[in-house]
Design a protein around this nucleic acid. Structure first.
Lengths: 128, 128
DNA sequence: ATACTTGCAAAAGTTTTGCAGGTTA
DNA sequence: TAACCTGCAAAACTTTTGCAAGTAT
């Protein structure tokens, strides 16, 4: 049987408190506030475990490795600001994805990723 | 001024001959047939350079790092078979992507990635 | 007490960099 | 010749693993 360790609880809390998906390094950083002894290996081990259990969803940010968010959110996609690099969850889903699937292929899943500028960075212009 | 080295030419040829996007390791493997002395560092350096120049497009395969394909292809997306792991280019683009963009955000670009089973793997069932 | 977990350090995998020597224009 | 490139080996990262010690049930 699985144990409810402080480390595991801290990771899950962090993901729930975050405003968007987090990288393993970010998760370590934030979780250390709750469990200062936490090591990166434990972060990776628990993320893998939580993803297998279905408690956490893994998200692949193009060019930046894996990010994680709590599972069970409504189906959604992501937007990354090219200026501040922040990742936002966006509602909805484009139409006609199924019809892109080639003849004889079977569609199981999809990911959509948008890039651009968030409203803050639009307001204030480039920071560099 | 940039030099037209055999190594650089070999990389570009490989990408054009390939049936889909290639990883750096695959590019090394295929390019070595043309320039046996080729090293992986040169592959990475040239890919970066070619992407900057706009001659090659970088593609982020979720969970598998960067892949590369010749630039200048029509706008398209990709489908990966979960059984044989092969990546296919697919035509077309879902509608309504622009309307997903949140208020005040500016959309510059997007990637769509489909997962499922290709027709070959559908025909013959799982290989394991 | 037992099974499960952790942190550390080492290992493995991937991408980048420094440099002496080689190539292109 | 001058500018640019290459291959090698070392360095920098990221992710995984082995293990002795610690924690949850």
């Amino acid at each position: 049987m699985k144990h409810r360790t402080q480390q595991r609880k801290a990771l899950v809390e962090c993901l729930h408190e975050a405003s968007g998906p987090l990288s393993p390094a970010e998760i370590l950083w934030f979780s250390k506030e709750k469990v200062p002894s936490l090591g990166i290996a434990t972060v990776y081990r628990n993320l893998k475990l939580l993803v297998q259990e279905g408690a956490v969803a893994e998200l692949h940010i193009p060019g930046q490795g894996s990010y994680y968010e709590p599972a069970g959110m409504n189906h959604h996609h992501h937007f990354q600001c090219r200026n501040c690099k922040q990742i936002f969850c966006i509602e909805g889903c484009p139409q006609g994805i199924k019809s892109l699937t080639p003849e004889g292929f079977e569609l199981e899943d999809h990911e959509v990723f948008l890039y651009g500028r968030c409203s803050e960075c639009n307001d204030y212009g480039p920071m560099f």
